[in-house]
Nucleic acid binder design. Sequence first.
DNA 1: TCAAAAGTGTTATTCCTACACCCATGG
DNA 2: CCATGGGTGTAGGAATAACACTTTTGA
Lengths: 212, 212
Amino acid sequence: MRSDTLQVLLWRRALDPHIGRWSLPGGRLRPDEDVETSIRRQLAEKVDIKKLKHVEQLAVFSTPDRVPGPRVVATAFLGLVPSDVDPEVPEDTSWHRVDDLPRTAFDHAEIVLRARDRLRSKLSYTNLGFALAPDVFTISELRGLYSAALGYRIAATNLQRVLARRGLLEPTGQTAPPGRSGGRPAALFSFACKGIQVTDPFAVLRPPPAAR
Amino acid sequence: MRSDTLQVLLWRRALDPHIGRWSLPGGRLRPDEDVETSIRRQLAEKVDIKKLKHVEQLAVFSTPDRVPGPRVVATAFLGLVPSDVDPEVPEDTSWHRVDDLPRTAFDHAEIVLRARDRLRSKLSYTNLGFALAPDVFTISELRGLYSAALGYRIAATNLQRVLARRGLLEPTGQTAPPGRSGGRPAALFSFACKGIQVTDPFAVLRPPPAAR
DNA sequence: TCAAAAGTGTTATTCCTACACCCATGG
DNA sequence: CCATGGGTGTAGGAATAACACTTTTGA
């Protein structure tokens, strides 16, 4: 994700099945690595992305005809990079809006949409926002990121309160300078926790208070 | 799951790596089937389970040393059978309490616990309860199933109201006869929808009402 | 002094849990 | 008529969305 739209990194295929179409970065699993190690290696080697803030399994895609030729089983991942990093990506690689994908190879468009849905739901019941934001940010910036990811505007006021109540926000004491059109300078915050955690585990059917 | 405890179907390994230990049913993926077709086939062929009410991917387990010998990548599934079916299982197969697992093969205990956690969270924000219950049930029975799956007692009153508010319960008009110690006969209900659906998609950060 | 952007206070609503109370049956 | 289990009404509380209002800046 970058700026105010949800984006995905794709690279243009140079080989023949679906040559020229855009596809998700990835590759073969080596015998000595597990799938997560593998996807981190591929991203580092092929598209120079080394600082993923969050990686999680999405699903296995295994329909026999999803790829021409012998069947290929793919384990898809959701990986998130904060909005302020702009990695040097190779020539044949670029970011694409998730809501306006180009012609993709194989079933990769389906995979991207599944990843988007996963991100959207996890934003509301986990602290996953930390993976989208820079280390230090204003509430307005964060609101922009959440709004872009969710696909609808949310209010900065309430976002701040929800995150604060959950103990996720830490004020830094610093402020950001206002823009050229003036306005009150915004306070800078950071996330208290850098790893994912479930913040709202039981929407209903909660366990009795003692067990919480 | 059966009766008032969460249970999992395991079978005793007859071959040598970890011979005699209990393991999850499964097997190799054929080239002409996807992973879900494969697991359904294996369950039907090997343990005679044909009526799964719900099947979903859990995760891929791929650590190189998870199985002795050449690395095996496993796609684990969560499959649910209603409490009233008691399939004929082979001699070397039996149900085991999830909270008191026997010595299992490989990483299968970890997989079972992951499945239990998935079930627990989905019970609260989806209608997944339909997969645990018989076609027709009393609220008390349903409460027993939810309590067993969640690991803590929940109140029948509130369970009924939560499910009713979401439009999931359909009264059948029938009643169940009381037990031998008397008591008012319980009304029988069924679930309105037989497939999984998300009933509480946004715990917080809801979209504006128009978009809902 | 005005416009713009950020932050705070307050209210109304929604949803949920807990608990008291009423109903129907068998012995 | 009493014990047992099922069902309903209601009150209190927690969390959140909406919105009016205040604060701080640049021009």
